[in-house]
Amino acid sequence: MTTSDSHSPRADASRNRKQLLDAATRVFASAESEPSLREIAREAGVGIATLYRHFPTREDLVAAVYSDQVERLTDGAHQLLAELPPAEALRRWMDLFGDWVATKEGMLGTLLAMIEAGEIAHAQTHTDLITTIDDIAGAGHATGELRSDVTAEDIAASLIGIFTVAPLPEHRARADRLLDVLMHGLRPKP
């Protein structure tokens, strides 16, 4: 009797890990304070022992969610650029960035402690995100869709400002308006 790949222990473990990461991302994004690991396991539809098997500590889970989100941001930028004109790709990427910022709110205490302890390379994340913004902006400069005098650092600072005054998810409409204003300012004058 053979076991299909979809029911193999390795496939189950991989599926459980993904479910846990997705659930943790949702719970962290909607939490006003750091949620319990039990709450995350419940949201994922797995037992607490399964969570601990994949992520023995809260820090392990936070690091995995953080890394997963940064990867989604960088990969997402390249996917958007492959499918859309650069200005539209940048605007859609800004939404992904806002979701990433929102996810960090529910894990902020742990995340800050980990950055302080050197367990998460915040400087590398900053570099990765600036490079990603620069890739999209550079494509927009090349097509003439985006101004060339605005740097990736300027765009990143603007995004942080917007999501500070209009945090997601409760202020999505305001954040969308502000992002549209930012995009208008990033376009060259006719």
Results as ranks from 00 to 15, higher is better:
residue 34 E to L: 05
residue 34 E to P: 09
residue 35 P to V: 00
residue 35 P to D: 02
residue 35 P to Y: 07
residue 36 S to K: 13
residue 36 S to R: 13
residue 37 L to D: 01
residue 37 L to C: 04
residue 38 R to C: 01
residue 39 E to R: 15
residue 39 E to P: 01
residue 39 E to T: 11
residue 39 E to L: 10
residue 40 I to D: 07
residue 40 I to A: 01
residue 40 I to M: 11
residue 40 I to L: 04
residue 41 A to Y: 07
residue 42 R to H: 13
residue 43 E to G: 01
residue 43 E to P: 08
residue 44 A to W: 10
residue 45 G to T: 01
residue 46 V to S: 02
residue 46 V to P: 03
residue 46 V to Y: 04
residue 46 V to I: 01
residue 46 V to Q: 06
residue 47 G to K: 10
residue 47 G to D: 08
residue 48 I to E: 13
residue 49 A to I: 04
residue 49 A to N: 10
residue 49 A to D: 11
residue 49 A to R: 12
residue 50 T to D: 06
residue 50 T to Y: 00
residue 50 T to M: 10
residue 50 T to S: 03
residue 50 T to A: 12
residue 50 T to W: 05
residue 51 L to H: 06
residue 51 L to Q: 11
residue 52 Y to H: 15
residue 53 R to Q: 15
residue 54 H to E: 14
residue 54 H to S: 08
residue 54 H to W: 09
residue 54 H to M: 03
residue 56 P to G: 03
residue 56 P to A: 04
residue 57 T to M: 03
residue 57 T to H: 14
residue 57 T to E: 07
residue 58 R to D: 00
residue 58 R to A: 02
residue 59 E to H: 13
residue 59 E to T: 02
residue 59 E to Y: 00
residue 60 D to H: 09
residue 60 D to Q: 06
residue 60 D to I: 04
residue 60 D to A: 06
residue 60 D to N: 11
residue 60 D to V: 02
residue 61 L to D: 05
residue 62 V to R: 15
residue 62 V to C: 10
residue 63 A to S: 10
residue 63 A to R: 15
residue 63 A to N: 11
residue 63 A to I: 04
residue 64 A to Q: 03
residue 64 A to D: 05
residue 65 V to M: 11
residue 66 Y to E: 15
residue 67 S to G: 08
residue 67 S to C: 07
residue 68 D to G: 03
residue 68 D to F: 00
residue 69 Q to S: 14
residue 69 Q to N: 15
residue 69 Q to E: 14
residue 71 E to R: 14
residue 71 E to W: 00
residue 71 E to H: 04
residue 71 E to K: 08
residue 71 E to D: 13
residue 73 L to R: 14
residue 74 T to H: 08
residue 74 T to S: 14
